[in-house]
């Protein structure tokens, strides 16, 4: 608990809401926390990859709907982008996650890396379109959808899904976008909101607004 200071000669009341010059340079804490999120997501990617085989086998009887599972590999970029709020955060986090799942070993080998880059870009482009200054739910959902579009295009062009009939490809593409919106967009936004409330994001702008800072309760 931070006690109120008796010697606060300068008024600091408005300071927390005052606009500061935007700083797009990554601090060390940005890099390390983005990496940690990326690494943690990478482990989940890997586990998702294991679960994917049986799940997609079930969905294989409804061809194209496997796209619904794609969101499991898309949330890292949106999550990183929403927390770090710096250009490149979505791509970086998604790539780290892809590389980590690749290090542990996935059936997609090095193409995992290429997928990571493109999926990250899908989310990144949306965040960039909003000039890295809007972090509301709508933008998070769009970023998730952006990643879904990216993976939908990739999968239906370069993977075994490329061999599917056109109708199935469309189903796949739409399912991937829906999955990205929900699993990557909505879940990431909820996670960031929850994280902010635990005070874990105190060094990030994402953790300072909307959360009740302990000292705010006193003053």
């Amino acid at each position: 608990m931070h006690a109120t200071t008796t010697s606060s000669h300068r008024s600091t009341r408005q300071a927390s809401t005052a606009k500061k010059p935007r700083n797009f340079r990554w601090r060390v804490v940005d890099i390390v926390v983005a990496s940690v999120i990326g690494v943690a997501s990478g482990v989940i990617f890997w586990a998702w990859g294991l679960a994917w085989s049986p799940l997609s086998a079930i969905l294989a009887f409804t061809p194209g709907l496997e796209g619904l599972l794609a969101g499991g590999w898309l949330f890292a970029g949106v999550l990183g982008g929403l927390i770090i709020r710096k250009p490149g955060a979505a791509v970086y986090t998604e790539v780290v996650a892809a590389v980590v799942s690749m290090l542990i070993g996935t059936q997609w080998g090095f193409s995992t890396l290429i997928w990571g880059v493109v999926e990250g870009l899908g989310a990144e482009i949306v965040l960039a379109l909003f000039l890295y200054s809007n972090w509301r739910l709508g933008v998070a959902l769009l970023a998730g959808a952006g990643a879904g579009v990216a993976v939908g295009l990739l999968d239906t062009t370069f993977t075994s899904y490329a061999a599917l009939d056109f109708g199935y490809k469309v189903v796949y593409f739409v399912s991937a976008v829906v999955s990205g919106t929900v699993l990557a967009g909505l879940l990431s936004w909820l996670a960031v909101r929850g994280l902010a409330r635990t005070g874990a994001l105190s060094r990030f702008a994402a953790g300072r607004e909307g959360s009740r800072a302990p000292s705010a309760a006193i003053s």
Binding site: T4, R13, A15, S202, S215, I218
Partner: peptide, 9 residues
């Protein structure tokens, strides 16, 4: 003063 806090550290 930490960013986002009202009181001085």
């Amino acid at each position: 003063r930490h960013a986002g806090r009202h009181s001085q550290a």
